[in-house]
Simulated assay, not measured.
Amino acid sequence: MTKTAFITGATSGIGEATAKILAQNNYKIILCGRRKERLDILKKELSAYTDVHTLQFDVRDKEAVFTAIASLPEDFSTIDVLINNAGNAHGLDPIQNGNTDDWDAMIDINVKGLLYVSKAIIPQMKDRKSGHIINIGSTAAKEVYPNGNVYCATKHAVDALNQGMRIDLNPFGIRVGAIHPGMVETEFSAVRFKGDTEKAENVYKGFTPLQAEDIADIIHFVVSRPYHINIADLVVMSTAQASSTIVNKS
């Protein structure tokens, strides 16, 4: 039976790469994101492999989240896999210089957005006693690095929520796990540095970082395990990276 995967932050990076690999492996795909043009382009591409539906909303907007998910047509209404991928880093300042708008954006997207989407989808999984939730965290969920303060705090929250979900949903047979990537060459740094492409490009110079496709391949592996297997917590870094601050650059 074809399964349906619901992917937030699907218009770029890990979300886009995951949508592609799952589509190519016979999953029906629900693409979620803020940028309609990108959603439309990706839908057209993936429709060559599978059935695709798009939902345009911002995970920070609670009402929009619940309205969008409630609007799903019958063919897409049963969600087997939820990939909570939407997330951002904004700024890289010491706590005393932090921008409160950046703090709000990270907390609203990385924590509250994940909660809103999960809250809207979990009930159907609970009723069926079946489902799989993948929360995309970060190595920042496992350690704190200089100037990472609030971003690290939000990813620590994702780590805690992942554990809490797994405990609370255990009686209903729902698989819950997190994947925590290290440095992945996506739009992540461009967003963090507010469009400063030189700074963003320097982050990935001198070593071979992870690519979005690497994480997507891992996500596909995780969701395709036999149902009695739940990969609960997985940290992934490139060979050159030993921690958030230790990277072997040539």
Results as ranks from 00 to 15, higher is better:
residue 76 F to S: 02
residue 219 I to G: 00
residue 139 T to S: 02
residue 37 E to P: 00
residue 118 S to R: 03
residue 145 Y to L: 11
residue 239 T to P: 02
residue 2 T to R: 08
residue 7 I to G: 11
residue 23 A to R: 01
residue 40 D to K: 12
residue 82 L to S: 04
residue 23 A to E: 01
residue 175 R to C: 04
residue 249 K to R: 15
residue 51 D to Q: 11
residue 216 A to K: 00
residue 22 L to W: 02
residue 5 A to R: 03
residue 82 L to M: 07
residue 176 V to N: 01
residue 117 V to F: 02
residue 18 T to Y: 00
residue 33 G to K: 08
residue 247 V to H: 09
residue 56 Q to S: 12
residue 43 K to G: 07
residue 55 L to T: 02
residue 69 I to S: 10
residue 108 D to K: 06
residue 31 L to N: 01
residue 180 H to V: 13
residue 227 Y to T: 08
residue 95 I to V: 14
residue 130 S to Y: 15
residue 39 L to P: 05
residue 81 V to W: 03
residue 132 H to F: 07
residue 108 D to N: 13
residue 169 L to V: 13
residue 63 E to R: 11
residue 125 M to L: 10
residue 28 K to L: 02
residue 128 R to F: 06
residue 151 Y to E: 07
residue 8 T to Q: 02
residue 205 K to T: 09
residue 27 Y to V: 03
residue 160 A to P: 05
residue 248 N to D: 15
residue 85 N to R: 06
residue 41 I to A: 15
residue 72 L to K: 06
residue 230 N to F: 03
residue 45 E to D: 15
residue 25 N to M: 03
residue 43 K to V: 02
residue 156 H to Q: 05
residue 46 L to C: 06
residue 186 T to P: 08
residue 241 Q to W: 06
residue 211 Q to N: 13
residue 164 G to R: 08
residue 212 A to R: 10
residue 202 N to Y: 09
residue 105 A to N: 14
residue 169 L to Y: 14
residue 250 S to Q: 12
residue 165 M to W: 08
residue 6 F to C: 04
residue 40 D to C: 11
residue 21 I to T: 14
residue 162 N to D: 12
residue 20 K to I: 10
residue 141 A to H: 03
residue 46 L to G: 05
residue 250 S to M: 11
residue 82 L to F: 09
residue 250 S to W: 10
residue 6 F to Q: 03
residue 122 I to A: 11
residue 152 C to D: 10
residue 54 T to Q: 13
residue 153 A to Y: 09
residue 17 A to H: 02
residue 218 I to W: 00
residue 149 N to F: 12
residue 9 G to H: 05
residue 68 A to L: 05
residue 37 E to H: 11
residue 244 S to F: 08
residue 170 N to R: 14
residue 250 S to T: 15
residue 212 A to L: 08
residue 130 S to H: 15
residue 178 A to G: 14
residue 191 V to H: 12
residue 56 Q to V: 10
residue 2 T to V: 15
residue 187 E to F: 03
residue 32 C to Q: 09
residue 29 I to D: 04
residue 185 E to Q: 14
residue 47 S to H: 01
residue 157 A to H: 04
residue 80 D to I: 03
residue 38 R to P: 02
residue 31 L to V: 06
residue 166 R to T: 04
residue 21 I to E: 08
residue 66 F to A: 08
residue 112 K to Y: 08
residue 70 A to D: 15
residue 74 E to K: 08
residue 215 I to L: 11
residue 219 I to H: 00
residue 243 S to P: 04
residue 149 N to E: 13
residue 169 L to T: 12
residue 108 D to L: 05
residue 18 T to I: 03
residue 3 K to E: 11
residue 158 V to R: 01
residue 46 L to R: 04
residue 118 S to D: 05
residue 124 Q to W: 07
residue 137 G to T: 01
residue 191 V to M: 12
residue 95 I to R: 05
residue 102 D to W: 10
residue 81 V to Q: 00
residue 94 P to A: 01
residue 176 V to D: 01
residue 226 P to W: 08
residue 17 A to M: 04
residue 131 G to H: 04
residue 140 A to Q: 10
residue 86 A to Q: 00
residue 156 H to Y: 13
residue 242 A to S: 12
residue 171 P to N: 12
residue 1 M to V: 10
